[in-house]
Design a binder for these strands. Structure first.
Lengths: 98, 98
DNA sequence: ATCGATGTTCGACGTTGATAGATGAAGGCG
DNA sequence: CGCCTTCATCTATCAACGTCGAACATCGAT
């Protein structure tokens, strides 16, 4: 079984969270996930390769932004609710901007 | 006379702004400037060299976060009010977190 | 067992970023 | 004028990041 490490949000620094959000591709990912649902990697509509996309998901996961739930051969990605509690208002504010 | 280029805020992407804020040293700088006043580089209390500090100020300036007003031999740094208009609530939210 | 779908991991490459030391520019002061 | 203060910039080094293709892993289906 595949294993994905999700960090304790208390150990995620603000600078790390901001840095994780500070990339156009990762912002696009977060926007897609912001509907609250679970999404596969293949649903992301960005013009980067699959491996690059996977790398960005890893960055977001290590920053505590996204949660990955493997199911069979697929991976369902969603925003971590704890992120909002750790950094209240941050994601809402960022997603409201462009 | 020294010349400092301050970008048009409309040309600053959200990802760039977040990336600029996504560094511990630069967050400390922004916190110091958040009193609304003008500050010199020497007032910053971070354990990096002066040239590194200057580099971080350049990064913040190019991201539209800070304004530099040279006066004689000194340089007065302050937050750009336009930043709040370009990214409403972002700075307030970030500064309210830790 | 083999195939296909879905992602991850592994080099590799080029770009960017962080850092420090040395240098330079501007002005105040004696 | 020469010296000091202040701080940007230049140069150099090293690490980190974004990107890709290829190889690998996992699982369901055939």
């Amino acid at each position: 079984m595949r294993h994905f490490d999700h960090p304790d949000l208390d150990e995620v620094a603000l600078a790390r969270a901001l840095s994780a959000l500070g990339d156009p591709v990762r912002l696009a990912i977060v926007r897609t996930l912001s509907d609250g649902g679970e999404h596969q990697v293949s649903e992301m509509q960005v013009e980067v390769s699959q491996s690059t996309l996977s790398h960005h998901f890893t960055t977001l996961r290590k920053a505590g932004v996204v949660f990955i739930r493997p199911e069979g051969t697929r991976c369902w990605h969603s925003l971590r609710p704890e992120f909002e509690q750790r950094f209240p208002g941050l994601l809402v504010t960022v997603l409201g901007l462009e």
